[in-house]
Structures are given as structure tokens and as C-alpha cells.
Design a protein around this nucleic acid. Sequence first.
DNA 1: TGTATATGTCGATAGACATCGAACACTCCG
DNA 2: CGGAGTGTTCGATGTCTATCGACATATACA
Lengths: 107, 107
Amino acid sequence: MAHPEPADLRLDKVLAALADPARLLAVRAPAEQGESPCTGLQQAAGLDISRSTFSHHQRVLREAGVIRVRVDGSRRMFSLRRAELDSCFPGLLDSVLNTAPELLGAR
Amino acid sequence: MAHPEPADLRLDKVLAALADPARLLAVRAPAEQGESPCTGLQQAAGLDISRSTFSHHQRVLREAGVIRVRVDGSRRMFSLRRAELDSCFPGLLDSVLNTAPELLGAR
DNA sequence: TGTATATGTCGATAGACATCGAACACTCCG
DNA sequence: CGGAGTGTTCGATGTCTATCGACATATACA
């Protein structure tokens, strides 16, 4: 369960991680609610996908450095790596999170 | 040679179009120099790829609504669709263009 | 100690994508 | 007209990605 260092964040990877409607939705829940458990996040995002697929998306976001995953008992708690992202790519996360849901893309 | 209407821009498509080191480079030239011819743009971006590959990238950027292509004699002139992008996704383009070249990603 | 809950991993599959060279189309200029 | 310059399209190829179901793992709880 590796997280990249802030110095290792790359814009193309971050953009690729965000360039998916499911992941754009998944990233909004921890942005609004703070740290969220995996299941709650999936439900909050209204994602009708299998657990393994969600786990895959979670890994993509984590390996790109967009989210942090913390083990808490039997659950995983997700949070946005907002400070690191804002530091490396100022304004990027805000512009993505402020986009109206209708403009995110088709599922 | 179709360009999407501003109302048809979708964040996931724009992010996907930008989520490539070659395209991130290609987009910086017209941002700095204004309207640029294709060849000049490719050279300015330092892209060592074939013409057909560059043409492919150009198409991806155009179909996502990131750039506009105008035919001028035997050449194509490229420009950023800055106004439309800023209107739909405020701050996104700026954050991408302001990112240091070393952070764009590996080629 | 079982049993239920929560989540990751594996292997398969189907579709998307980056890349190239070759061939084609169009414009400009001599 | 014909060659040079500019760029697109096509077909092939290798790689990546999204998705799933099944299985494994780990914690929590009775």
C-alpha cells in the first residue's frame, strides 16, 4: 500500500487518475465529508460498480497521489491529499471539484 | 474537422486529453506564442514523434475541445480554446499551464 | 472459535490508446 | 504542369485500462 512522495507527483498521472467519471465522483465524497470509509464513499458517490472495480479505481487514485488510504481496523479510510496537490499543482484540485456534476462526463 | 460546442465539453474528456506528456507539451506552445502552425508547434514542444502520431494527438486535443484548428492555406493553425475552457472549468487550464515542465511526466 | 463484515488480489476479457510507416490529399511555387 | 511542403488517414502492433467474478485476507463480534 504505497503512497508516492509529494516530490514524485506527476501531472500526467494525476490527470489520468482524474480522467474517469467514476473516479471524479469518488473523489468528491472525501472532499466534502473529509475522511471517509471505502464503502461509504462508494455509496455516497452513487457508484454502481463491483467492489473489485472500485478497489481498482481506489488504487489508481492512490498511486497517482490523489488520495491517501489509512487502515482503521477492518476498514480503509480515504482522504484527499489536498495540501500536497495544492502545493504541486495550485488550483487544479479546486477547479476539478468545483465543476458541476453534469459536466463530469457520462457513465 | 469537428470542434465540440462549449456546452458539450466534458471534464473527463478534457482531463484525458491532457493526461499525456506529449500533449501537455504540445499545449504549451500555443499558450505562449498564440496561434501556431502544426509543424512549428511540434518543434517548439520538442516532440520527437512521427507526423502521424502528432496528428493523432492534435485530434484528441481538438475533439476534447482543448484546441481549435483553423486551416490556413496548406497549413493548420492551432490555438487554445482558452475562453471556453476557462468558462466551463475555471482555473483548470491555468493550473496545468503553470506547472513546472519537470512535473509534467516522463516521455 | 466460528461467523459476518470489509476489502484486496488474481486471472480473464474486451475495448481503448500510442505509435509507426506507407499511402493519400491539398496547397504553394517555379 | 510538377515538385516540395504540410498534414491526414489507414492498417498493424503492442500496451494499457476498466470491468467482472471468484478467491483470499483480515478484523470484529457473538
